[in-house]
Amino acid sequence: MTADSESGRALRSDAERNRQRVLAAARELFAARGLEPNLNDVAHHANVGVGTVYRRFPTKEDLMEAIFEHGIDQIAALAESALQQEDSWEGFVWFVEHLCELTATDRGLREMVYSKAYGGYRVECARLRLDPPVTRLVERARADGHLRPDIEPSDMPIVSLLAGTVSEWAGHVEPALWRRYVALLLDGMRNHDGQGRLAVSALEDEQMDTAMRGWLPAG
Score class of each variant (00 low, 15 high):
Pro149Val: 06
Leu184Gly: 07
Lys60Asp: 06
Glu111His: 00
Met208Ile: 04
Cys100Val: 01
Leu99Tyr: 00
Leu137Phe: 10
Arg129Trp: 04
Asn40Glu: 08
Glu86Cys: 01
Asp155Pro: 00
Ser7Tyr: 08
Leu63Thr: 04
Met156Glu: 02
Pro217Lys: 12
Ala24Cys: 13
Val93Thr: 07
Thr210Arg: 13
Leu11Val: 10
Leu162Phe: 06
Asp4Asn: 11
Ala32Gly: 04
Arg148Lys: 04
Gln207Cys: 14
Gln74Trp: 06
Cys125Gly: 02
Gly120Ala: 15
Gln85His: 06
Asn191Trp: 02
Ala211Glu: 14
Val53Arg: 05
Glu97Trp: 02
Glu168Val: 00
Ala24Glu: 09
Glu139Tyr: 08
Ser201Lys: 10
Asn47Ser: 11
Gly145Thr: 07
Tyr54Glu: 08
Gly51Leu: 09
Arg33His: 14
Tyr121Ser: 05
Ser13Glu: 06
Glu139Arg: 14
Ala117Phe: 08
Ala199Met: 07
Asn47Thr: 11
Val93Met: 05
Arg136His: 07
Arg127Glu: 14
Asp4Leu: 12
Val200Ile: 13
Ser201Ala: 15
Ile158Cys: 00
Tyr118Cys: 07
Ala77Trp: 00
Leu216Met: 12
Val96Asn: 04
Glu90His: 05
Arg213Asp: 15
Arg122Tyr: 02
Arg140Tyr: 10
Ile67Arg: 03
His172Trp: 12
Asn47Asp: 12
Glu139Pro: 02
Asn40Thr: 14
Ala202His: 04
Leu203Ala: 13
Met212Trp: 15
Glu6Asn: 03
Phe30Cys: 04
Thr59Cys: 12
Phe30Gln: 01
Ile75Cys: 02
Arg140Leu: 15
Gln207Asn: 13
Glu168Thr: 03
Ala183Pro: 01
Asp193Trp: 12
Asp155Ala: 01
Ile72Glu: 05
Ala15Ile: 06
Ser5Gly: 12
Arg9Asn: 14
Arg140Gly: 11
Glu36Tyr: 03
His70Tyr: 03
Ile75Asn: 05
Ala82Ser: 11
Ser160Glu: 03
Gly91Thr: 11
Leu177Trp: 01
Gly214Phe: 15
Phe68Lys: 03
Leu99Phe: 00
Leu185Gly: 03
Gln195Glu: 14
Val53Ile: 08
Arg142Thr: 04
Asn38Gly: 14
Gly214Ile: 15
Trp169Ile: 15
Thr210His: 15
Trp169Cys: 13
Ala26Val: 05
Arg12Val: 09
Leu184Glu: 10
Met208Asn: 09
Ser5Arg: 15
Met1Ser: 11
Gly34Val: 02
Gly8His: 08
Glu86Val: 10
Arg142Pro: 03
Glu80Lys: 06
Gly49Gln: 09
Arg180Met: 14
Gly49Glu: 10
Thr59Trp: 00
Pro37Lys: 04
Lys116Gly: 09
Pro132Val: 03
